[in-house]
């Protein structure tokens, strides 16, 4: 699993080759920081996503935040039940709280992301 500075995670299913499917979600740290989540807007299957660009939005009691794609690709599956079950983002952020699955366009983009240890260090030292 890799992490973006903007707190999204991405996990590749199988080998990280072009066309491989990767699952995307948001980190437990981000969910906790946003506090009470109230609304989520997600892309449609087939939509293109671009690394570093927004692919959806999430609203908490205090804030609307963009969700940024860690890698580029095409959306192949959307967790359509998630907007009605936002608690999953907090209770199981790396499992049942997944958001979208994409077909990777350029797996080399994964190299620019942080591993778990680097991400944990970034949020603990406030450099996020």
């Amino acid at each position: 699993m890799k992490f973006a500075k903007s707190h999204e995670w991405i996990r590749v299913e199988g080998d990280a080759a072009p066309g491989a499917v990767a699952t995307i979600g948001v980190s437990a740290y981000a969910v906790e920081a946003l506090t009470d989540l109230v609304f989520m807007q997600l892309p449609a299957v087939g939509a293109p996503v671009t690394a570093g660009e927004p692919f959806g939005e999430i609203e908490s009691v205090k804030a609307v935040s963009d969700l940024y794609a860690p890698c580029s690709g095409e959306v192949v599956e959307v967790h359509t039940e998630l907007p009605d079950n936002l608690d999953l983002l907090g209770s199981d952020p790396y499992g049942k709280g997944w958001i979208i699955k994409i077909k990777l366009a350029d797996p080399s983009q994964l190299d620019a992301l942080m591993d778990q240890a680097a991400y944990d260090a970034s949020v603990s030292d406030g450099s996020h």
Partner: peptide
């Protein structure tokens, strides 16, 4: 009502909300 809203008695007088950008 949300945590941190400013009230005078029962009346809310200041509310805020954010957009978190990159």
């Amino acid at each position: 009502r949300a945590m941190g809203d400013v009230v005078v008695g029962p009346h809310k007088v200041l509310g805020s909300a954010q957009r978190r950008l990159s």
